[in-house]
């Protein structure tokens, strides 16, 4: 049901690795869960909306007024790494508009 191609592509999206011996167990568990989801197919959803709930009017949204941001000292209290005011990451190229993971 879940072939290697699908498994690997979803793991890639998830940014997770499942190593060799765990892989089969992982696949089995996922397949079991997915097949349980079939219970939904018995429900007729023809022309049913997937309503996102009630809407909110513009007046109830946030007024465009500036509030204080974090002082740099606060960022240092929770940052995993903070160098000269920046969050460092392994060198990357491009603007990151998706998918450039070479």
């Amino acid at each position: 049901m879940i072939d290697d191609k699908v498994l690997n592509s979803i793991l890639y999206m998830s940014k997770l690795k499942v190593s060799g011996e765990e892989k089969e167990n992982f696949r089995k568990q996922i397949e079991e869960i997915l097949s349980y989801f079939k219970v939904l197919t018995s429900v007729d959803t023809e022309n049913v909306e997937s309503a996102a709930g009630e809407g909110v009017s513009i007046e109830d949204l946030r007024v465009d007024e500036i509030k204080d941001s974090f002082p740099l000292a606060i960022i240092k209290t929770f940052a995993a790494d903070f160098q000269d005011g920046y969050f460092p990451v392994p060198r990357i190229l491009g603007d990151g508009s998706g998918g450039e993971y070479k």
């Binding site: 160098q83 920046y86 969050f87 460092p88 990451v89 060198r91 990357i92 190229l93 990151g96 508009s97």
Partner: peptide, 19 residues
């Protein structure tokens, strides 16, 4: 919009993110 990734030629092998 996203933040900005800064690429310095500082030999560190790092990029720096400004949000």
């Amino acid at each position: 919009d996203a933040g900005k990734n800064l690429h310095l030629e500082d030999g560190s092998g790092l990029s720096y993110v400004d949000f």
